[in-house]
Design a protein around this nucleic acid. Structure first.
Lengths: 337, 337
DNA sequence: CTCTAGCACTCTGTGTTCCCGAGTGCCAAG
DNA sequence: CTTGGCACTCGGGAACACAGAGTGCTAGAG
């Protein structure tokens, strides 16, 4: 059905269209990609490719443009991920190494990725689920208010101000803090709920209301926000591109964390570090865009996802290379800290 | 030079142009704003206004459009800040009251402001400069690494991982923490440098290298990042508007914290809660946009600034009302926590 | 059976022309 | 100072023609 030459034609169409942003015709194709055949032959192949739905023409007597299905075939079978240059890799390394804390790592990562790909970069904060507790801090703010600070081994810090149901003396708070830390230090976040289940019973009865309040906030902190935080950068790169769905929708989606999460997708459990490419209509919401994403985190300890979002007409090999490389480097950085 | 009627004409031109986005002609003006005079008279006034540089025409035989100078006069003398409706105020209050921590307050504020004004909202994180130290925490992470966490009375948490020059036992760290807290608790951040100046001398000699490292990081935390953090929302609202400078430049500026800070401007020391309006070319960078901003924070304790950014053709009275109201509410919320 | 060359056909995009109408500036009269 | 009248200007849309790119088809060559 699709012999090698037809595939070569498809590849050439995708490459030319991506670089020129203009429908590509048979003549230009035959010339620029030394295919050793005449334009007429190319035309026959193009007719076949169009028949199968891999390409389409905007109007009669214009060149051909890849369809989502065409890009899909290109990504799956006709292209190879393009590695970054040595210079680029060095630049990444030094830029990421300069980060001072987790916020900074994430910020630098997302900016770097946006700059490398000239697309919109999206980075999900490392999820808490697989993290462990490094420290729990209770800071008395006033008679009836304390601040809860939870520090994880990934360097993430969660904080909440808690209103207590009654006045609790500072030394009681200090005691609770000591108990909490001895109990939770180094434990996985997912095990926290069971670990603190019987805690109220092990403490003086008069503290129970306060303890219950504090623990419930702690639990909230764990479950509610563990993967909601997500940032993007490079919105300016959207200015040039044109989207099927309209620029406004894309910008709106970028500010909706829920939508953004969905677009990045789930890390598949069997091959967590694989690149995910969703093209055009394969995406939930935002049909007119493509998303290249991957999980990051060292080895079996996948932390979260990152990727880029752009028009379907994007340079997939280069973009995939950049996403993969950045994911690897940020994984290293996080593993080291 | 500019009698009352000419001012009324200018006001009418601004209002019409803002609402229709089309150059406004003398005839339509005379009809819609019962000015009690004929189009010809209006034309004479318009000629005078143009002579003075308050309005201009895109091309001969088109209506008039306000210049930056025209908007400036309108804002200064011809308009009143428009208060929000009761329903809007209630909505703000309940929405902001639901915030759980400082990040959440800022996030909610910026989104709210974007939604109210249908412009891009910008909020600077509460600056540390006038905050006081609530708590300093040192958490040993490993033999040679500790995490420094600085908690301020505004609920802000700064964190740094510190590599120590040598192994320091945990109880020494604990001691240093106690000393630091007793020394700094409740003190203004700006006084911290002098307060810790002689600290190394008051501690055992063998700890000095480690202490010096920790203190230098603490100082860095204070000075470096105290006002860099700034967020925006509502970029999607830019999609419709057209900017003199091009959409791309605006989006780029939004991601450059330094530029954003400059655009928000300084809080004037004498009237900190006054609304600042910068119109078009009055702005540093981004000449094609207008910025409406104000400081927030309770009373004499100004924390930082917030505002919105949009095309020069914006509804200033409404925008100013929204910015002022949101600043007041967020000040309340922060003062209460 | 596949490839190639030639040819007629169909579009889009561009440039030209024309004309309408909105809006202006100026002038003279109220 | 205001107003009505009037000639003028210019942008934008409609109508039109045209060149060029690209196609599909057919017939012939390998």
């Amino acid at each position: 059905m699709l012999d090698d030459r037809k595939l070569a034609v498809l590849r050439a169409i995708v490459e030319d269209y991506v670089s020129t942003n203009e429908p590509v015709g048979s003549k230009a194709l035959a010339e620029r990609h030394n295919l050793k055949v005449s334009p007429a032959t190319v035309r026959n192949d193009m007719a076949a490719l169009e028949e199968e739905g891999y390409i389409t023409q905007p109007h009669t007597s214009a060149g051909r443009v890849p369809t989502d299905k065409g890009y899909r075939l290109f990504v799956d079978r006709l292209s190879q991920v393009k590695p970054l240059s040595a210079a680029e890799r060095r630049a990444i390394e030094t830029f990421l190494a300069g980060a001072v804390d987790l916020d900074d790592v994430v910020m630098r990562t997302v900016r770097l990725l946006a700059q490398l790909t000239r697309q919109v970069a999206v980075v999900q904060y490392p999820t808490l689920t697989r993290s462990t507790v490094r420290h729990v801090e209770l800071v008395p703010l006033s008679e009836r208010r304390v601040m809860l600070v939870l520090i994880t081994n990934t360097g993430r810090v969660e904080q909440r101000v808690i209103e207590l149901p009654e006045v609790v003396e500072d030394h009681r708070i200090a005691h609770l803090r000591a108990v909490l830390n001895s109990c939770l230090d180094g434990c996985g976040l997912s095990t926290v709920p069971e670990l603190i289940a019987d805690l109220p019973e092990r403490l003086p009865a008069e503290d129970r209301p306060a303890v219950a309040t504090i623990l419930s906030v702690l639990l909230e902190t764990l479950v509610e926000r563990h993967d909601e935080k997500i940032v993007f950068a490079g919105a300016a790169n959207l200015a040039g591109a044109d989207f099927a769905t309209g620029l406004r929708d894309v910008l709106e989606a970028l500010e909706e964390h829920v939508v953004l999460m969905r677009l990045l997708g789930e890390t598949s459990s069997d091959t967590p570090s694989a690149l995910t490419v969703r093209i055009g209509s394969e995406n939930p919401y935002l049909r007119g865009t493509s998303v290249v994403a991957t999980g990051y985190g060292s080895g079996d300890n996948q932390l979260a996802r990152l990727g880029v979002l752009g028009p379907t007409r994007m340079d997939y090999p280069v973009t995939m290379g950049a996403v993969r490389a950045v994911a690897r480097y940020v994984s290293q950085i996080l593993a080291a800290s």
